[in-house]
Design a protein around this nucleic acid. Sequence first.
DNA 1: ACATTTTTGTGCGATACCGCACAAATACCC
DNA 2: GGGTATTTGTGCGGTATCGCACAAAAATGT
Lengths: 237, 237
Amino acid sequence: MLPDQSFTRNAILSSLLPADWTLLQPHLQRIELSRGFEFFAADTPVEHVYFLEGGVASIVCECGGEEVEVGLVGREGFTASFMLMGTDRSPDKSFVQIDDSTALRIGADRLAEMVAESASLRARLLLFNHVLSVQCARTAAANASAEIPQRLARWLLMCHDRVGGDVLNLTHEFMSMMLAVRRAGVTVTLHLLEGVGAISARRGEVTIRNRGKLEDMAGEIYGVPEAEYRRLLGPLA
Amino acid sequence: MLPDQSFTRNAILSSLLPADWTLLQPHLQRIELSRGFEFFAADTPVEHVYFLEGGVASIVCECGGEEVEVGLVGREGFTASFMLMGTDRSPDKSFVQIDDSTALRIGADRLAEMVAESASLRARLLLFNHVLSVQCARTAAANASAEIPQRLARWLLMCHDRVGGDVLNLTHEFMSMMLAVRRAGVTVTLHLLEGVGAISARRGEVTIRNRGKLEDMAGEIYGVPEAEYRRLLGPLA
DNA sequence: ACATTTTTGTGCGATACCGCACAAATACCC
DNA sequence: GGGTATTTGTGCGGTATCGCACAAAAATGT
């Protein structure tokens, strides 16, 4: 059966008013996430909204043949937040980046109805959308002015924030696509981070060894969206 | 006195339902925009929301000493759209980039009340917020993968879309800050665009001569947010 | 008319990153 | 256990962009 509110690891769901939870709960369905699954496609009506309980979802722009990541969501939020704005689609797309987890999903139309009814539910979800906007703005700034080591450190930190442990299953190739840099550039930068003792890397796997050092490496480009989340939605349980 | 709905050049206001216009109209105040005026500051409660009737507002991140533009708004929208998400502040800031125009402003608190009351008003404003998010995402992608000529062409097009005529009053220094590139880089790139016949430039002034050529130069990185605007909010009058 | 400030043109050496290419290492499959 | 596919390590030449610096040109002030 479906979990009690206190037993989902999704931070938004578990912070809802009991009344709003009661509204949603009957329509939630637990789904196993698998690598590469698409939450929504570009310019296509979205079917479900997913409240992740772990793992990471990427939001990417397809732009000139390549895909560039513009957002990252985990159990602190949910996918397809644009549906709160009154559109059923977006020019971006989103997919599972790190799996090994579940999500609770609900039909997008159904959620839209409930959001229209309950102002408190709406308010909670809109706050997360704001945080996601801030994250995207910071990504734009980082892409314009930061160098690869800073950007990669920031990106690893954002993944680490959303995954249970310290081990991230990622290939260099994949990271290079997300940051829109050369694969070989990722390889040498990972060696740099390894040399400082911030991480250790093996085939298809990055392990966070020292968050502090990663944060030092990222500098000012990491932290603002995270602080905004805590300010508006509270600390992650 | 204040204008009739059909006489404001702001596209959002003039597309509102008459009932919503009646709600807002008594609280709107017309303001002359002057270069550098701040619509909102970082991490500071916003006082007013401005519906521009011309000119351009920049939204920028302050990040590591420098300012990077992450959004651009003109008479097609309004400032401080984050207030729709239930927050009174944001880590970014916004100011007048191109003046010579007016705006209709309303107290942010008052607008928040009205948005809470009127679902139709809320819906209209939220749609613009979505388009702004798409713009920001595209900016993030462009910053990651496009070169200066493409980025500058895109930026000039976005300004051109929002300003009445073909003349933009801008210094190289200012454009270099917005794109987070070297001032000298802007100078040579403007010469490049001039060489192709896309623009002509004089001290503190860029004139658009051939939009088509600018669009060719920008390529795929221009156009998606603009199409999303037309899809959801219709063509600009 | 002259001095001052702002803006633009231009050049030079450094460097971060690219595209490409290929070998080595590691996982996978039959 | 041997072949295949994937992932990673590494190097080389090319280029976009940087940081800096300085002079020319254009506006501004008195």
